[in-house]
Write a protein that binds this DNA or RNA. Structure first.
Lengths: 138, 138
DNA sequence: ATATTTCTTGAGAGTTACTCTAAGTCAAGA
DNA sequence: TCTTGACTTAGAGTAACTCTCAAGAAATAT
C-alpha cells in the first residue's frame, strides 16, 4: 500500500494532480485507512499509469472518465475499451508525426542561427551595422 | 497579403488563437489596412510558424514573448535566440521519448485486450460469468 | 508529558491558454 | 435599401491543473 506522496514519486505525477484525478473519479478502487488517508494498492498504480498515459496523449478528462466507467462496468465492455485504446494509439501516432514536423522547424532554425553566428557574428559587435529598421527575422 | 482568415487556413491555427497571439504581441510587424483589418505578409507567416512551433512543444506564452522581443531587438540577440532554439529542441526530443513510452503502454494495453477478445470473449456473453466483484482491470 | 514538526485532508482561489459570445463597424452584392 | 459576411474589440466561459490554506492526526524532539 502506498500513500499519495509515494504514488506521486513512483508515478511522477504531482500529489495535487492525483487528488484532482481521484476527485474526478479516475481511481474508483482506492481505499482509505481509519484516518481517511488514501491507500493505493499496486493495482491502483496501474489505474494511475493508464490515466497518465491517456492524459499524456491529450485525452480529455471527460473521455477518461468514460473509459474508467467502462472498466468498472466489467467484461461486457472489453470491446469498447479495445476500440478506445486503438483510437488513442492512432492519435498518439499522429502526435508523433506532428512533433517530428516541429522538430524539423527547430532544426532549420538551429542551422539558420548557427550559420549566422559562424559567418557574420562580427556584425553584431559593429555599431555601424544598424542598417535595418526593425528586425524581421524570427 | 493575407487576411486573418486566410492565415488561419494556411497555418492551421484558429482565427481566435491568431487574434489572441496578436494581442499577446507575437506578431509585431502585422500591418492594418484603412479599415483596421490585419494584413499578414509572407514574412508574418514565418512568425506564425515559429510561434506555432514553440507552442506545439509546450513553450509558455510568456517565454514566446521573450523570444519575439529578442527577435525585434535585432542582431545583437542572435546568440540568445540560438540558445533558446537549442533548448527548445532538446525539450521536444524529450517529449518524443515520453510519447514513445506512452505508445508502449498503449501497445501493451492493445495486446492485452486483443488477447482477451480472441480467447475468452464468449465469457462476455455468459451471464454465469459474473464472478468478480467489480472490474479491477484498467 | 508536552511541544513541534510532518503528513494528509478538503475546500476553494488562482493560472494558463485558449475558446466562445456579443455587440459593433464597414463594404459589397441582390 | 437591405442584408450578408468578414472583420473588430471586450469580456465571459472552459479545461485542467496548480497552489494556498486551515484543520486534524501522528511521529519526533525536548
Amino acid at each position: 500500500m502506498y500513500t499519495i506522496k509515494e504514488v506521486a514519486k513512483i508515478m511522477e505525477v504531482s500529489e495535487h494532480t492525483l487528488r484532482f484525478w481521484a476527485k474526478s473519479g479516475f481511481f474508483p478502487f482506492v481505499k482509505r485507512d481509519s484516518n481517511n488517508i488514501r491507500q493505493f494498492s499496486d493495482n491502483d498504480l496501474e489505474w494511475v499509469r493508464i490515466v497518465k498515459c491517456l492524459r499524456a496523449v491529450g485525452t480529455e478528462n471527460k473521455a477518461i472518465k468514460k473509459y474508467i466507467d467502462l472498466c468498472v462496468a466489467g467484461d461486457s465492455t472489453i470491446k469498447d475499451r479495445y476500440k478506445i485504446i486503438q483510437e488513442t494509439k492512432q492519435k498518439a501516432l499522429n502526435q508523433m508525426k506532428e512533433l517530428k514536423k516541429q522538430l524539423d522547424v527547430l532544426d532549420f532554425k538551429e542551422n539558420f542561427y548557427r550559420n549566422l553566428i559562424e559567418h557574420n557574428l562580427e556584425d553584431t559587435w559593429n555599431p555601424m551595422n544598424k542598417r535595418k529598421t526593425g528586425a524581421k527575422t524570427v
